[in-house]
Amino acid sequence: MALTLVPQWFFGFDIIMQLLFSLATAFVAFYSLKLYKISEQREIRLFCTAFILIAFSYLIKALTNWFVITQIQDRVRSLTLNNVNLIGLLGIHAYLILFTAGLATLAYLTFKIKSPRAYILLLAINIVFIILSQNKAFAFSTLSSLFILFICINYLIEFKLNKNPRTILIFLAFLGLFISGLDFFFISDFYTNYVISHFIELASYALILTSLYLTARKTKK
């Protein structure tokens, strides 16, 4: 998708960063799974599911990027370019669907309703929109930006209600993810936005982990 627009010197770094995003989101999922096992609260289960989906999406994105780059560079391998292209496409599609499905799950959580049908409809619209779209990159960026903006607004409202400083960190994290997602809309003019967006994403996940750490530390006191 954006392989040709990645600066040469950033090859490899982006894959490492995507693996870090995967680890960070997997850690959030693991912590929430631990609390879900104790509380069996539906909201915590959905939150855990959302972060598992996002963690897998980053893992698949990193592995796909790594696979495509190494296969293209290594011409001795028996795989044809068509096969590489097919595996790359499958990986990118899996990333697009898993990432937006994770965001759709987080957005559904903000509705504070218990309706499996509404959740399935949200996921179905999301998947169909991406699969049938002519310009998948544009569909993905638009959809994920909308979901993240929606989640951002929700966390701002939550902060106004509970005045919890850790909630504002989550708001800032999603605001960062929203800004980083905007790189696509400007990438054709200024390709270093790809690099900047990765660093903003890194800062966003660091904020989520900080908030999680402060939450865990508070209960241990």
């Binding site: 909201e43 959580l109 909630t167 939450t215």
Partner: peptide, 12 residues
């Protein structure tokens, strides 16, 4: 308390 702090922070 761990469950409450977590759900409060993440708006759950």
């Amino acid at each position: 308390s761990s469950i409450v702090e977590f759900t409060n922070t993440f708006g759950l």
